[in-house]
Write a protein that binds this DNA or RNA. Sequence first.
RNA 1: GGGUGAUUAGCUCAGUUGGUAGAGCGCUUCCUUUACACGGAAGAUGUCGGGAGUUCGAGCCUCUCAUCACCCA
Length: 1048
Amino acid sequence: MAMEKTFDAKTAEPRIYKMWEEAGAFRAGANATRDETFTIMLPPPNVTGHLHVGHAFSQTLMDILTRWKRMQGYDTLWQPGLDHAGIAVQLMVEKHLAETQQPKRTELGREKFLEKVWEWKADNGGMIEQQGRRLGNSLDWERSAFTMSGASSAPSGEKPGNFHDAVLKVFVDMYNKDLIYRGKRLVNWDPHFETAISDLEVENIEVDGHMWHFKYPLAGGETYEYVEKDEDGNVTLRETRDYIAIATTRPETMLGDGAVAVNPKDERYAPIVGKLCEIPVGPKEQRRLIPIITDPYPDMDFGSGAVKITGAHDFNDYEVAKRGNIPMYALMDTKGHMRADGKPYTEEAATAQRIANGEEGFDENKIAAMNMVPEEYRGLDRFEARKKVIEDITSEGNAVMIPNPAHGGGPGSGSGAASDNDADRSPGRDPGPQPAPEFIPYVENKKIMQPQAERGGTVIEPALTDQWFVDAEKVVGPALDAVKEGRTKIMPESGEKVYYHWLENIEPWCISRQLWWGHQIPVWYGLAVSETSPELQSDGHGRVSVDIYQHAETGQLAWEERFCAASEDEARQMAAVYANERIPEHFKYVSVFENYAAAMSFGKKNPDHYCIYRDPDVLDTWFSSGLWPFGTLGWPEQTDELAKYFPGDVLVTGQDILFFWVARMMMMSEAVMDDIPFHTVYLHQLVRDAQGKKMSKTTGNVIDPLDMIDAYGADALRFSNAQMAALGGVLKISEDRIKGYRNFTTKLWNAFSFADHYAIPYPGDPVRPQATQTLNKWIIGEVGKVREVVDEALAAYRFNDAADALYAFTWGKVCDWYLEFSKPILQGEDAAAKLETEQTLRWVLDQCLILLHPIMPFITEELWGLAGTRSKMLVHADWPTYGAEMVDADADREMNWVIGLIDNVRSARAQVHVPAGAKVPLLVTGLDAKGQSAWDNNAVLIQRLARIESLGHVDAFPKGCVTIPMDGGTFGIPLEGLIDVASEIARLEKTLQKLGKELGGLRGRLNNPKFAASAPDEVVAEAKENLRLREGEEAEIKAAMARLQELG
RNA sequence: GGGUGAUUAGCUCAGUUGGUAGAGCGCUUCCUUUACACGGAAGAUGUCGGGAGUUCGAGCCUCUCAUCACCCA
């Protein structure tokens, strides 16, 4: 073979990958020699996503495990696939439509729009799978799944699949088991996409905000004594007030207030609890009065201690309102604008007042229909409305006022017309007599936590809407137990605590999204009908009159009947059965419409049609990806793959989706399959830049894994990934490190180049020789050790340990020592030794390839092919099972002695500045039998590597000699005349110092009677042996120094 | 505010049941010696965040303080 100077990753990698793929090397079960399976499900990336460093990292780990197990003969499956990524993809397509001047989504309508999404997917989807190939991922691509496969909207060219069926089946099953319900809940609403999003898709970001302080006047001009006390109970403020002060960061929501709450322990407001106060905004004549209630939620020390309760626009308020049965008035529409629907404000306000007074009952639908936004605010954007509310309140004098700091010195507070009672809010500055206003509204600048959509960054608006929920509390039990009982293990262990904490406090999971791209909820709505309904009017001919639809026009839930079915046909049948049961032999047809309006308008004209329409919403993306562990294997069909590969083995994923995805797979898998989805979860952190910062386009510190592959090869990136994969560790990717591992690949390449250079024959797969040479026995033992280390490390998911061990072995043992040691033999005359060394060398190099292959598949496969004719590709080579039994203790000791001697001679030479090229004589005193034999066996190696000319036995060293104490004899380099006495003394002194420190510690321990008494025997023995050796060295060095001092 | 984790060489980080600290990169000096300058050889640098405790012995266990990061409110 004629080897290039370095490995050309750029051209070799695609070639090698193609070879693997064409040979079907990654197919499920390829190379299997045993029944045990090993399954990993690739977390499905966004169908239109790109490979980023996080993918590259976790996919490297998955590939290492998969390749390792495949070589061990397991029946492996690494299952690929893509996620339809509802909101993200819909957003991209909408953007694309706008950019290409195509009609908007709403103009296209649902069906046409979905066609466009599928087109987009066909054009742009799956790129990440190509990128994954560049990393070397050994996925069974032919099995690639898609969460929307089998959807009715899918075009004919799409790869067939039944994931869609699986999703609908699970929904229907869970619905029938009452695990899924529909309800009006406060959810995170994205006003830009006009959809609900999950808690997990919301980021709370600290922004500069304001806290406004307003007065809510007491009804009927009532007053009370407001008293503030300090910690010791001394009165610090006492005044008569006719209002209660409220602090808020969101004034626009005041319009929807249902109450003011104070803490039951708050004495300041005790006199007015149960009374009414006025919301100081809106038309003066229709000011609403709301009750002052008590609730544990308000923090007495925060703001004024009184909190306005707007159940429909704040999560905390929502809880308070539920507890207190306070009406929750929704103020905004789906776009985040103040509502413009409903009755005139005066009417609504009057109704609300009757409700507040307890004169009129209410339910959530009635409240939902009411629009409490006064006409002057209707239609305004929420932020504009905020400005206007603040202006209006302030101009009316209902803002809490404080002295103006810009006002300068002057008379005390209390003289401002609008602020007689504001002393409690004074920061204590003296107002001054400047022309600036003496008092200004009290507005605190404050950091507030603002909920923003993770995708798009829109400010999230809590909104009361009808949504579908999974009753998470009911399905969480088995998922919790699985981890508690150890059936599924989360690594690092800290992940388990986080998992418990979240699951034990789980909230209902909102699974409906007001989007089009996704699995449309398999629920059809029809009228709830009953012959006893007053709306049922016979027309005298046994027909039901159109009046039955009147009530339905309000769209109220009470009149809704639901048919949950996996298909439209089933839904029709259910509807037909239902309709016939209710009004026998009345409805002749069941007709399905796209929406409520169409159903109603047709139904009115055609009373013999029972009209139904499908819920327009789609399911949360995570609902479908929760089924990934079995949906990809063909479920609900009972396929062979399902039987074989489920449950899977390991899930490798980022810590950030522990809740999003991992917990949900656990819940869904237990609920649907009654089993865990995998026995191990390997969580890793976010991949950051070398400084530990998050990568972001705006910061410009994004590292593209494909750039790294272009520059250094996939193997270098993979090795770097493995090396930084310490369990639970922070992941900082550094280009320098990747470069370093590229150098490592070159080192490996050159080791083979060495074999090539010495024309070492490579007839097929080498077998391990029965070594007789110490050198060869030693390296074979080292191979055994490293294989054990690597297997233990990988079994424990300690990828960094595996990578480090292989690096240290390949470079530090094989290249640095073994290849160097082999040179004199390969060049020598001893034919038997030469043959054995050739055989050992090529066997050792092959073991490097095998052991490194899971981490660095490309270069190892390339070298495997270059080095000789093989029976199998490396990807399917047999993983070794040998181990430490190959270690020959004598060989091990001897070679370590040789290496130690060479190290010491080199070090001594360098420090006394013997020219690197010069060959020097070596002397020895008191060489014992073991030492003599070690020398004799390895004299050629030592002489070559330490540049020694000859060995002379002496009784005493001559003056001016560098001393090297070794176990079994003391060596010396006679350098009279050449030697720098002072620097040699300095060198010895330094060694002595180090030794002294060690000796101090050892003696201290051994002299302590308690040490001998309580420490294990082997530790004591080790310390004693250590002390003996060190004392010997110390004596030698002292003697050497004495000789030098004589000389000096 | 609650939770989790971190603090070890100039930088980035390992350090598995407590036995006396390591790697890569960087740095200094020397070397183009026939596998490799993406290399070889030698070398320097640490009161393991501060304090206290348990122990014969603590980077590791306990407590406490400080700083930082992330997650959830």
